[in-house]
Design a protein around this nucleic acid. Structure first.
Lengths: 341, 341
DNA sequence: TTAATCAATGCAATCGATTGCATTTCTGTT
DNA sequence: AACAGAAATGCAATCGATTGCATTGATTAA
């Protein structure tokens, strides 16, 4: 199949009447090799169209200089920001990054993890899917001491560095903001509680309500997978409850969007009748009418931090004695869905 | 560093007092191996926690079962749809997919291409970046007969299968639609002409105008990189021209969005004063007010098709005698930015 | 001049799985 | 019991780069 034959260091060696070891060293700028031969070898390598076979090198060195990244969905703004942050740091340090998406599907997540493991990535950065409640596919990595860094959707049970945002604080702040707008009955559309982030967002919401001396209506706290459709079902359900709320804190922007669209259609005014705050600052949140108040997460910086921690760990021979959990600050962005002009 | 030692087929072989070749064959379900030994070996493999070293196998077989994908930006809806389509087909056929983004930056695109090449991906699917005008990094692949499939932003000079949408037709249809709304002066915000897609969109636009017997105002055809900012500059420039247009065909939704937001701010009514059509059907296009009329591209299907063609090519020993260019249909979606209610 | 030192290069094993070919072990037939 | 043929297994080379150790040649010190 190959028309141009593969050129190996042996071919270069033969042509120059030297040994393959010398070629290998010269190409790696090993100082043992004299300047003259180095030049000669590099010149020949270029002329002959030499392309190193990374697989062979990796096999020998047991390193791939590759970082695996698994996210639920690559086209969520938050996740793609994190990926950009990871790439930013990784490329500068000479690591390649291979990105995969689990589609929030446990089976696919597991397949990907096994593939990355089998390909011997030097480390893994991931945010688990919504379905993920068993972690065998991740233990693979910890058992073999392959560095692992979680971000956002982390797993408590597995010791590793973790980068999270202050979900509790963000949710607290969001809810408090609604209360400051004079709202007394704040509902909540939340995510699956097996994911810590959603548990924390709900906790922050609850704390803000009780700190304000208000009542929680348990019928108006819903849990689902936070898709567009889930959001629609949730808002419908909420509207059917006895005491209609005057505000909703949504655990993501997608459900906030569903709610707004449905309320618009029903002629229920946002924010006058029902004020809404979302979470994540998806790009669309500023484009809808009314624009969505939301919590901004520093995705790019999280990615950078994750990559830094991972690469540091890859570089060190020993297991870190203690694992850090880094919590990044969030920011409340007030837009029209929660505040009257 | 590794606590659990790596288990190889040799370890299994030693333990069972058989040869490594038998182990290798058994694990690959080679029919040469008797059912009994196969069972025994698989059992031992699991017990001992064997994990195949893909690098070693790849080195030997010269295949990686991996497809590389390079796109300009992973968080564009169109591109992520294509990626999902690729994954859909690839995973079913046992291929891993590694995704990279060039950020429309030639240098990064080149680095990625070299990395993928060095890692011996079995094939490459890509859509080139806006800056890409030299193709040395892609010739790498064609020279070594590594299958290559382009989609959307293709390169004419390189022989390969290509999947495109009917940009000309889509643009023609979009412009025609504006004309059907009674518009006589249609401006165009276009992309860099070194990319065929933008050249074709412009051509379609021009054809529609001339077919309708209307005049083109060359001052009102602008070219830029189609970012949010570029769009803003473009609309400002257009508004300054002598004869203000009554419609704009934008080569993507992002610039359509910029235009709409700016016009909203200026109090110029969309679509009454200026009607707008975009391209790509980004998710936000239905969310803005007014919602953006646009051209929908079948991203998922394009990805599927690209993966199919690529995998077929990977499987065959010989170079295809002729390369296909598959053109997929687009669909005009009429929303409020171009049609009064 | 000789031994000691250093710089430059080469040898050969190694990483782990695969596979063409050789060899052993069975099975059935006469 | 002997043998052909099939079935199962083993041997050893191979993929291409890396690297510890040995060797060569050159330089310096004594």
């Amino acid at each position: 199949m190959a028309q141009k034959p593969e050129i190996t260091i042996h071919d270069i060696a033969k042509k120059l009447n030297i040994s393959a070891s010398t070629v290998s060293r010269a190409l790696k700028d090993n100082p043992l090799i004299s300047e003259a031969t180095r030049q000669k070898i590099k010149k020949a390598a270029i002329e002959m169209g030499y392309r190193p076979n990374v697989m062979a090198a990796n096999l020998r060195t047991r390193r791939t200089n590759t970082i695996g990244v698994i996210v639920p969905l690559i086209n969520r703004h938050f996740f793609s920001s994190v990926i950009s942050g990871i790439e930013d740091v990784a490329y500068k340090q000479g690591f390649a990054v291979t990105i995969s998406q689990s589609n929030d599907n446990l089976e696919k997540e597991s397949t990907i993890a096994h593939t990355l493991f089998a390909n011997r990535v030097d480390g893994l950065i991931l945010s688990i899917g919504m379905e993920t409640q068993s972690y065998d596919h991740l233990k693979l990595f910890s058992e073999r001491n392959i560095p692992l860094v979680f971000f956002d959707r982390i797993v408590d049970e597995i010791p590793a560095h973790k980068i999270v945002v202050d979900d509790f604080g963000g949710a607290y702040r969001a809810t408090q903001h609604l209360i400051e707008q004079g709202r007394k009955k704040v509902a909540h559309i939340g995510g699956p509680l097996n994911l810590q982030i959603y548990a924390k967002r709900e906790a922050g919401y609850r704390k803000a309500i009780s700190d304000a001396g208000l009542q929680i209506n348990e019928n108006q706290i819903l849990h689902n997978s936070l898709t567009r459709e889930d959001g629609l079902n949730a808002i419908k359900k909420i509207l059917k409850t006895k005491e209609r709320p005057d505000a909703i804190f949504c655990a993501n922007d997608t459900t906030a969007l569903s709610a707004i669209i449905h309320l618009n259609e029903k002629g229920i005014k946002v924010p006058e009748d029902i004020a809404i705050v979302g979470f994540s600052n998806e790009p669309f949140s500023e484009l809808v009418t009314p624009s969505i108040s939301t919590i901004k997460q520093p995705g790019f910086e999280m990615g950078q931090k994750a990559a830094e921690l991972l690469i540091k760990q890859i570089g060190s021979k020993t297991k870190p004695k203690n694992y850090e959990t880094i919590m990044m600050e969030t920011e409340l962005i007030v837009r029209n869905s929660s505040q009257q002009k």
